[in-house]
Structure formats: C-alpha cells, structure tokens
C-alpha cells in the first residue's frame, strides 16, 4: 500500500500544472524510494520525468512497486477542491482501483476526502542515457519563462546559441526577428538572477517554442532552471525541487533547413 503526506497541497497542484499540458494520462510509479513519473507527449517530441523522493514526504510508506494510472484531467478536478495550504495525504491499497486524497486544513477543523478512479495505462519506458552535455546553463527560471513568452511573439521556433560569453536565444518570423542574450554573470547581489555557463564546446540548437512554453509552467516550483545541451541531441530542461526531487523535460531538436 501507499501512504504519503505533504505539508502543502500547493506543491502537488503546481506539479500537476507543470505536466498536464504535455501529458493527459500517466503512471505514477510508487516504490519505497519515492514516486516517479516518466511520460511522453502524444507526438513523442517531448518527455517529462518527475521524481519525488520518499524523504520529501512526512510520513511516506510504500512497501512494494505500485503503478498508479492517473488521468491528469480528473486529478486536476479533485485537486481544485484542495486549499493551497491544506495538508495533503494520498493513499492507495495494493489491489485497489482508486486513489484516496485527504485534504486537511491547517487547524484540522475541516477534513475532506476524495477518491480518484485509477486506470490501467500501458506506458513505454524510455531508457535515457547518462549524457555529458557540451553546455550546461543555469539561469533564473523567471527569465527563461519571459524569454520564451517574448520570442513566441516572433516565431514558433527558437534558436539557442551558447558560447563562453553567454547564451543567446533568437527567433525569426514574418514580423521580423528578435533575440535575447544573457551574459555569464555577474549579478553577485542576486544569486537567483545569475547566469552561469559550463561549456565544453559551443552549441547551436533549434527547438519548438510551444514545448518550452509548456515546460515553463514549472516556473513556480523553482527559482532556477538548468538547460543542458549538446548539438543534435535532445535538450534537458531541469527544475530542482527543494529537498524533494526534480521535474525534468527533454525536447528533441529541430534539424536541418
């Protein structure tokens, strides 16, 4: 059986926001080390990998591998019934076909209980190789979100060039073109705003902006985002969750003219 408690329902709400534009239904794979999700979008262009470690919950109990097949639209409906500050407990029995969700107000004078019907989902699990990336850029997640939003005015594609001087995002479309360059900084006063670049080799990659805009739904989960890139391979976009795990997105590049 699974029993896992989070001090604030807001976290699960935010996680759901971060994946529900990409994926309609997926397995939440629960075991004694935590809860993991790996799912691709329907076009197999993007993949989301989510890890919530057991020690990020208090308490956490799961004695065997338990895949919980969840329709995210349905889960979203139920989570709308939770207050952001509610204590959230999820429970599932080994052979059950429902997920129990309990929302408890902080002063415990209101307890609501919901059951979400689970489903059987055949998920294909992709083996993602450990990769040494040529360029690893850590930057403000809010800045990344703004750049994606701004350049989506210009084009549905974005070109990312990383050199030792900085990272340049550019777009070219019918109205004209635009670019934003962030220099390796710099902002010693505001660590959250700094851009740091680890570079083995310069990279230049083109991606669909639509997917980046889905990824930036994870912005509320972390003040930082890490972009890991090598030429001609999928980008890894990672948001680390404080003391809990991560949300990682992979996006295949666009290639050729």
């Amino acid at each position: 059986m699974l029993e896992a408690r989070l001090p604030q329902a807001k976290l699960l709400k935010s996680l759901l926001e971060a994946i529900k534009e990409l994926v309609v239904e997926c397995n939440f794979d629960c075991n004694d080390s935590g809860i993991a999700v790996q799912a691709m979008d329907s076009s197999h262009v993007a993949l989301v990998a989510l890890l919530l470690r057991a020690d990020g919950f208090d308490p956490y109990r799961c004695d065997r591998n338990l895949p919980l097949g969840i329709n995210l639209t349905s889960l979203n409906k139920i989570l709308k019934c939770a207050g952001n500050e509610d204590i959230l407990t999820i429970k599932a029995s080994d052979d059950g076909d429902v997920l129990n969700l309990v929302f408890e107000s902080k002063d415990s004078d209101r307890i609501s209980e919901y059951e979400l019907k689970l489903m059987d989902i055949d998920s294909e699990h992709l083996g993602i190789p450990d990769t040494q990336y040529d360029a690893v850029v850590s930057m403000s997640s809010g800045e990344f979100q703004r750049i994606c939003r701004d350049l989506s005015q210009i084009s549905d594609s974005i070109v990312i060039d990383v050199t030792k001087e900085g990272i340049k995002f550019s777009a070219s479309g019918e109205v004209g073109n635009g670019s934003v360059t962030l220099k390796q900084s710099g902002s010693v006063d505001r660590e959250d705003e700094a851009t740091t670049i680890e570079l083995q080799q310069a990279v230049s990659l083109t991606f669909s902006l639509k997917y980046f805009q889905y990824f930036t739904k994870a912005t509320p989960l972390s003040s930082r985002v890490v972009l890991s890139m090598s030429n001609d391979v999928p980008i890894l976009v990672e948001y680390k969750l404080d003391n809990l795990g991560y949300v990682r997105y992979y996006l295949a590049p666009k290639i050729g003219d």
């Binding site: 699990h125 992709l126 083996g127 993602i128 083109t206 669909s208 999928p234 295949a252 666009k254 290639i255």
Partner: peptide
Amino acid sequence: SSNQKSLDDFFNGS
C-alpha cells in the same frame, strides 16, 4: 523551415 525530430530517435524504448 526545419524538421522536428522524435525522441524515439534518441532514447531506447523498453
């Protein structure tokens, strides 16, 4: 315009 690759071209299924 450019061609969108699929993740299946990079990662192995199981």
